[in-house]
Amino acid sequence: MELTISIILGFMIIGAIYALHAKDLLSAVIAIGMVGYGLVICFLLLKAPDLAIVQIVVETITLVIMVAVVLDSTRSEIETIPDRRSIVQMILGFIIFAGLFYFFIQAIENLDPLGAHTLRMSEIYVNGAVEKTGSVNLVTGVLFDFRAYDTLGEAVILYTAALGALTLLRMKGKK
C-alpha cells in the first residue's frame, strides 16, 4: 500500500513541478488538474470513496473555472534571467527548505506509521454510530450529526465565496 501511494505521489510531485515551470499557462492548469486526479486515485486506495467523488467533481469544476480565466489571455509566461540577487535568494530559500524538511522528519519520527492509527475520539464515530445517527455512511454521520456545526460553517464559506465573487465581479464599484 505504502509503495503504491508513494509512486502515485511521486508522479504528483513531478506534475506539480511541471505545472510551476510550464511556459504555457493552459498546460500548467491542465497539469495541476492531473495532479488533482492523482489525488482522487490516492483517496480511492485509502478507502475514502466520499472524498474521491467530491474531489473529482470539485477538481473538474476548478479546472473549468481556471481554463475559463486563462483561455482568453496571453497565456505565455515571461521568464526572468536570474541575477545575483535572485541567486542569493535561491540559496537562502534552499537552506530554509532543507531546515523545514529536516525538522519535519524529526517531528514525525515518533508518530504512528501508516496504517497503525488508533481510534480515540473517533471511536464513538465508528462503533455504535449507526445506531446513534441512523446513517450507514459514517462520514455522513460525522458531517451531519456529530459535527454538523462544522458543516454549516463549510456551507457558509461556499456561500461567502459566491457572494464575494458576485461582489468582486460587478462592473462599477462606485456610483
Partner: peptide
C-alpha cells in the same frame, strides 16, 4: 473501518479550497 473523522475534515477542506480558488 478507517477513521471517518479525517475524511470529514478533508471534505470540509476541499470545499474551503474551492472557495479560495474561486475568489
Amino acid at each position: 473501518y478507517v477513521d471517518p473523522l479525517p475524511q470529514a475534515m478533508v471534505l470540509t477542506a476541499i470545499v474551503i479550497g474551492l472557495a479560495t480558488t474561486a475568489m
